[in-house]
Every structure is written in structure tokens, then in C-alpha cells.
């Protein structure tokens, strides 16, 4: 693996996505995908400038509380089990990716979203908005302070429940790296039963979304921590990039 001190390249062709690692568009266990999955094959071609470039977000656009979901809605603390969600954004060779905008959203401690479409019986927490954002630092690191989201039922099968999860939106340095995913929590028995989790066919791909409890990052008498590292779609090494270290 390349020296972690080297940062991921920000230009150059993108490596093709492994479509067998990602969930397929059509996954009948997740019923909504049945009418929303394209039935024709994707048109594949090497990336162009349109996918290799992308918007850039600086840390200067962030508000002080943007990554603190416990306080960022009203300034009064949200109810729930306090947790740190943290990790590193890296490329396919393990090199850190700085300047990555991460946006997250989640249900409150009772499993209810602050959204007009969510009518679940669990109450809204007046002090929990459910959204946060940050930009990775020079080492590709990020951190959120939040509460553990509750599991919630959803209309799919007769008795389907979403495991505890946090939705995560990720920008790379190219628009072709754009990704949305979900983080799950180690040990949650609902993960294995979830039709959305199981749209992913490969068990080790699912494990990539399960954040382990991280007692080294937990703060005694304050909060637990979970670690969620994110790997972006890679860029191909170009001849010119290789030469300084390779020759």
C-alpha cells in the first residue's frame, strides 16, 4: 500500500466502478427499486473531464456547530445516547483525501425523522434537526458529534425495520466519485434482516458499512465512538504521476 503521507491524486482518469460490489439497481427485496431501476444496460466509457472534475468545498464555509448534531438545531441538547462518529476518507490505495464534503442525516433517538413524509409514532425531539456536515482535514479525517439514531419500521415487507443507521453523502474531487451510503452500527441484529442492506450481494461489502465500536476514541463519562472509514472511487495512476516516486 502506498505511503499514507502521500495524498490521493485529484486529477486523472477514474477507475471504473465495480458494479458487483455496489448494489444492483434492481433488487426486488427492496420493493421500491422494482419500478425505479433502469432495465437497460448502462452505457460504459472511460471518464472524461466532466466526471474527473467536480465542485470544491472549503472548511471556511462551515459553521462552528455544523458537525455537532446534538446542538446544531436549537442550541439546546438533543435527547439520546451521545456518540462520536469519526473516520478517514481515503482513496483506493489508502491515501487520505482532504477537502471532502461529508453531509449526514439521520432519525432521532426514537427512530423518527424531521420530515413531512415521516408519520412514525415516535415523537419528534424539538432540539434535533437530524442533519450535519463537515469537510475532511489534511489527513482526510472527519468527526461528528451526534446521538445514536433509533431503529424504525418501514412499509416494505409485512414487518421490516431499518437497523440504526446514519445516511452519508460524499463528494470526491470529481463528480464521477459522487456517492451516497449509510453507516450501520456494530452488533445491531437488524442489519442482517434489512432488505436495503441486503441489496448489497457481497457480505464483505456489507461489512464495510458496519462501523465498529471504537473505545479508543470514546470519551470517558461522556460519549461512545464509532469509526467509519470511507473509500472513494479511485483514480488511475498516470505515467507522469508515477515517475517521481516510481523511477
Amino acid at each position: 500500500m502506498a505511503d499514507a503521507a502521500a495524498q490521493a491524486p485529484t486529477r486523472g482518469p477514474l477507475v471504473a466502478r465495480d458494479r458487483l460490489w455496489h448494489p444492483p439497481a434492481y433488487a426486488p427485496g427492496y420493493k421500491t427499486s422494482v419500478t425505479r431501476a433502469p432495465s437497460r444496460a448502462l452505457i460504459a466509457a472511460p471518464s472524461t473531464l466532466s466526471e474527473e472534475t467536480g465542485p470544491v468545498f472549503g472548511r471556511d464555509m462551515l459553521g462552528e456547530m455544523d458537525n455537532n448534531l446534538i446542538l446544531n438545531f436549537t442550541g439546546q441538547p438533543a435527547i439520546g445516547e451521545r456518540i462520536i462518529m469519526h473516520g478517514r476518507v481515503q482513496d483506493d490505495q489508502g491515501r487520505p483525501v482532504p477537502g471532502v464534503l461529508l453531509e449526514i442525516w439521520q432519525a432521532n433517538a426514537g427512530g423518527r425523522y424531521r420530515h413531512k413524509k415521516d408519520g412514525y409514532a415516535a415523537p419528534l425531539d424539538p432540539n434535533f434537526g437530524g442533519g450535519g456536515r463537515t469537510v475532511t482535514d489534511d489527513g482526510g479525517r472527519y468527526e461528528f458529534l451526534t446521538i445514536r439514531p433509533g431503529a424504525y419500521p418501514w412499509p416494505n415487507g409485512p414487518n421490516d425495520w431499518r437497523p440504526m443507521h446514519i445516511h452519508v453523502s460524499v463528494f470526491g474531487s470529481g463528480f464521477g466519485q459522487r456517492l451516497i451510503t449509510q453507516m450501520y452500527f456494530e452488533g445491531d441484529p437488524l442489519i442482517a434482516r434489512c432488505p436495503i442492506v441486503n441489496t448489497i450481494k457481497d457480505r464483505s461489502a456489507i461489512e464495510q458499512l458496519v462501523a465498529p465500536l471504537d473505545m479508543a476514541a470514546a470519551i470517558p463519562m461522556d460519549c461512545l465512538a464509532y469509526r467509519f472509514d470511507i473509500t472513494l472511487r479511485g483514480r488511475r495512476q498516470t505515467f507522469f504521476e508515477n515517475r517521481p516516486e516510481g523511477l
Partner: peptide
Amino acid sequence: LPYLPETPSQTAGPYVHIGLTP
């Protein structure tokens, strides 16, 4: 080859606006 696999995608779900267009 020792390349790390990309983090797999999951649906944005119906509540995407909370995070992206609050």
C-alpha cells in the same frame, strides 16, 4: 491487487432533504 474497494452505495431514501436541502 491491494486496492481498497470503494465504499458501497446505499439508497438516499425518502428523507434525503433533511441532510442535503434542509
